Amino acid sequence: MSEQYIQTPLTNEVIDSLQVGQMVYISGTVYTARDAAHKRLVEMIQKNEPLPFDFTGQIVYYAGPCPNKPGFVIGSVGPTTSGRMDAYAPLLIEHGLKGMIGKGLRDDGVKEAIVKYKGVYFAAIGGAAALMSQCITHVDIIAFEDLGTEAIRKLTVKNLPVIVAIDAKGNDVYLK
Rank of each mutant, 00 (worst) to 15 (best):
T32N: 10
M132A: 13
M44C: 01
L41Y: 04
V73I: 15
R84P: 10
L92G: 02
I101S: 05
A130E: 13
I101A: 05
G21W: 12
K39P: 00
T81R: 12
G96T: 02
E94N: 02
L51Y: 08
K103W: 14
L51M: 15
K111H: 02
G99P: 05
F122N: 00
I125L: 15
I142K: 03
M85D: 08
V42K: 07
I93R: 01
A129C: 03
G119M: 09
S17A: 14
Q46Y: 09
I74V: 15
K118W: 11
F53Y: 15
L147W: 11
P52K: 04
D140V: 01
S76G: 10
V110N: 06
G148M: 08
C66I: 14
Q58G: 03
A129D: 05
H138D: 15
S17P: 08
F53K: 02
D16M: 05
A63H: 02
L18Y: 10
S82F: 13
T81Q: 10
G126Q: 06
D107E: 11
V42T: 09
V42W: 14
E145I: 02
I125S: 14
D54A: 10
D35R: 05
K118P: 04
G21S: 10
I152K: 05
D107M: 08
G21K: 12
E150V: 12
L131T: 06
C135A: 11
E150A: 11
N68M: 13
E94S: 01
L131M: 15
I125R: 11
R40T: 06
I152S: 04
L131A: 08
G102S: 00
K103Q: 10
D86S: 09
